[in-house]
């Protein structure tokens, strides 16, 4: 279990992180979302020990993290980095050795992961000769080669084609099912919604929401969506709560009095649509980041 506790980080006068806490549990996939510059990368870098925090700490299985314990982590940085003039298979194996594998085990694991990621026949190619998406697969292999006990991936899906997204998602789900805590950041909210058990939303350096997708939906508050055909303009004034227009005569109403809303709508005209609106993650995100 990875616990990030009360992180604070400033760059000059810019407060990048302000009291950020989150927990990634074993066997759970944690989706980390937030607007550009919200602080996702900074949080992950501190968790990986690449950056030092001003305050707060990161704990792993209840004890503070050291370099040698972090060697069990797999990391994919936001700005991908590989040696452009080094062959793929030796490169992946090199990172395996850096994480403590024996040379033979590293070589074997590198071969297996490259096979699995569809690069089995390209082990002797130089990284610089690969397409961007394929370099990304190599990057994933680098983060997985030592069979990590924790995965921290910064935007692993960006730049991937739909097939590669499926491969990547499959690998992550598989690791997660094997009991490895996984945290990844992404701007593809549909993907996060589909893959993640837990979602954390960060905005301007503060965690604004965290929990399972269902919990987030519940706490975001359910709203009623209502559409009345041929209603006279201004009829929404009669509703028992504040209403926001979604265009085309649709309104979102914030009110616990569903029967009251329905009555007001029926009085206004022919009700063609009425029901609770399930907010998508994108809606929750927009609201939380506003």
């Amino acid at each position: 279990m990875l616990e990030v506790r009360n992180l604070r980080k400033t760059f000059g006068d810019n407060v990048a992180l302000d009291d950020v806490s989150l927990t990634v549990e074993p066997g759970r996939m944690f989706g980390f979302v937030g607007a550009n510059g919200a602080g996702k990368t900074t949080t992950m870098r501190i968790a990986m020990g690449v950056l030092e925090s001003d305050a707060g700490d990161v704990r792993w299985d209840g004890a503070s993290l050291t370099k040698s314990r972090r060697a069990d982590f797999g990391y994919m940085p936001e700005e991908r980095g590989l040696y452009p003039k080094m062959k793929i298979a030796p490169q992946v194996a090199y990172f395996g050795e850096l994480h403590g594998l024996t040379p033979a085990a590293a070589k074997r694991a590198a071969g297996e992961w490259l096979d699995r990621l569809g690069l089995g026949d390209r082990g002797d190619d130089f990284v610089q000769d690969l397409s961007l998406g394929n370099q990304q697969r190599v990057q994933l292999a680098v983060s997985l080669v030592h069979d990590p006990k924790m995965l921290i991936l910064d935007e692993p899906f960006s730049g991937l084609d739909p097939l590669a997204v499926d491969t990547m998602a499959g690998v992550l789900a598989d690791r997660s099912a094997a009991g490895v805590p996984v945290i990844f950041s992404s701007h593809q909210l549909d993907l996060v919604e589909r893959l993640c058990d837990t979602v954390g939303i960060i905005s301007k350096g503060k965690m604004v929401a965290a929990g399972t997708v269902t919990e987030l939906r519940r706490s975001a508050g359910r709203r009623l969506r209502v559409n009345v055909a041929d209603a006279t303009p201004g009829w929404e004034q009669t509703l028992p709560g504040p209403a926001t227009s979604c265009g085309d005569g649709e309104w979102l109403v914030d009110s616990a009095d569903d029967q009251g809303v329905l009555a007001a709508a029926m009085a206004a005209g022919r009700v063609v649509r009425f029901g609770y609106d399930e907010p998508s993650l994108a809606d929750i995100f927009r609201e939380a980041s506003a």
Partner: peptide, 11 residues
């Protein structure tokens, strides 16, 4: 090439 970020996570 930003590879230093991965290197520093284990070195």
């Amino acid at each position: 090439s930003r590879i230093v970020e991965i290197l520093l996570s284990s070195l």
